[in-house]
C-alpha cells in the first residue's frame, strides 16, 4: 500500500480530479475571467454544441484527418517494416533513419515543413522540375489539410514501423519455409502468414494511430493557425481556443467530454470490427 501511495497521489491530482472537474464544468457556463457569475446550465452546452459552426467544422476536419492519416501511416509503417525486414546490410541505419522523425518535436517538424511547403521551398522546386506549377499547399483551403495529414503520417510512421518490425521478427521463420515448400507466392505468404500473425499488432497500431490523429493540434496551430478558412481547425484546437483564448471553460469542458466520448466509440468500433473479421475467418468452414 505504501508503494501505491505516491503514484495514486499523482494520478488523483493530475488525472482523476481534473476529469471529474471537467465533467462538472461541462454542465455550467464557467467563465475563467469571472468565476463568480457561473450558472448551472444543465445540458444546454451539449445541445448547443453541434449548432456551433466552428465546432461542426472542427469535427469534420478531425474526421477528415483521421481518414487520411490512419491508412497512410498504418500502411506506410507496414510497408517500411516489410522492406527493412528484407534488407541485409545497414539494417540498423534504416531503422534509426526512419525513426528519427518520431522523436523530433512536433513544433520543430512543423516549422521545418512550413519551409518545405512554401512557394519557393523544396517540394515546389521538385514539382517544378516536372513542369508542375507551384502549389499553395498549406496556404490553400483545399490542400492544407491533406498536406498536414501527409506530413504527420510521415513523421509518425517510424514508430509503428518499429512495432511492426518487432512483430515480423517474432514470426517463426519455419512458417515461410513451409509455405515455400507449399508453392506459395510472395503475396500469398504475406496474406496467409504475415498478416494473420501480425493481426493483434495491427489492431494496436491502428487504434493508436487513430487516437493520435484525433488529437491533432500542434501542427495546424503552428503551420496554419487552423486556417485557411478553418480548413485545418481541429477539435482539440477548438477546445483550446474556447477555453484558453475565449476563457469559456464551461463550453470547453463540454467539448472535451464529447471528444473523449468519440475517441472511445472509435476505439470500440475498431476493436470489434477487427476481431469480428478474424472470427469470421475461423467460422467459415464449420
Amino acid at each position: 500500500m505504501a508503494f501505491f501511495g505516491p503514484a495514486l497521489v499523482l494520478l488523483t491530482i493530475f488525472l482523476f480530479i481534473p476529469m471529474i472537474l471537467t465533467l462538472i464544468f461541462s454542465f455550467t457556463d464557467f467563465f475563467a475571467l469571472n468565476p463568480d457569475i457561473t450558472h448551472f446550465v444543465g445540458f444546454e452546452n451539449y445541445s448547443q454544441l453541434f449548432h456551433d459552426e466552428d465546432f461542426r467544422q472542427a469535427f469534420g476536419n478531425t474526421v477528415r484527418f483521421m481518414l487520411i492519416i490512419v491508412p497512410l501511416q498504418g500502411l506506410g509503417a507496414l510497408s517500411l517494416a516489410l522492406l527493412i525486414n528484407k534488407v541485409t546490410h545497414c539494417k540498423k541505419y534504416f531503422k534509426v533513419a526512419f525513426f528519427v522523425p518520431v522523436v523530433m518535436s512536433l513544433a520543430v517538424v512543423s516549422t521545418l515543413w512550413i519551409q518545405i511547403f512554401s512557394p519557393e521551398g523544396i517540394l515546389n522546386s521538385i514539382l517544378g522540375n516536372f513542369g508542375i506549377d507551384p502549389q499553395p499547399f498549406i496556404n490553400s483551403a483545399s490542400q492544407a489539410l491533406p498536406s498536414i495529414a501527409v506530413m504527420s503520417s510521415w513523421q509518425g510512421m517510424g514508430y509503428q514501423m518499429i512495432i511492426f518490425l518487432g512483430g515480423l521478427q517474432a514470426i517463426n521463420p519455419a512458417l515461410y519455409e513451409a509455405a515455400e515448400m507449399d508453392h506459395a507466392s510472395g503475396w500469398k505468404k504475406f496474406k496467409d502468414i504475415t498478416l494473420p500473425e501480425l493481426k493483434p499488432l495491427c489492431i494496436f497500431v491502428f487504434i493508436t494511430i487513430t487516437i493520435g490523429a484525433f488529437r491533432m493540434l500542434v501542427q495546424p496551430m503552428i503551420m496554419t493557425g487552423g486556417g485557411p478558412s478553418h480548413s485545418t481547425y481541429t477539435m482539440v484546437y477548438d477546445i483550446y481556443e474556447t477555453g484558453t483564448v475565449n476563457w469559456e471553460i464551461g463550453l470547453a469542458s463540454t467539448m472535451s467530454i464529447v471528444f473523449a466520448f468519440f475517441v472511445m466509440i472509435l476505439t470500440v468500433i475498431q476493436t470489434v470490427v477487427t476481431k469480428e473479421r478474424g472470427n469470421k475467418h475461423a467460422d467459415k468452414k464449420k
Binding site: N172, L175, E177, A178, E180, M181, D182, H183, P196, A282
Partner: peptide, 19 residues
Amino acid sequence: APRDRGISMVFQNYALYPH
C-alpha cells in the same frame, strides 16, 4: 528453388499455419 526440387519437408516444430 526448394519448391522445384520435388521435396517435401517436415519441420522440427511442425510450422503448421496457425490460423
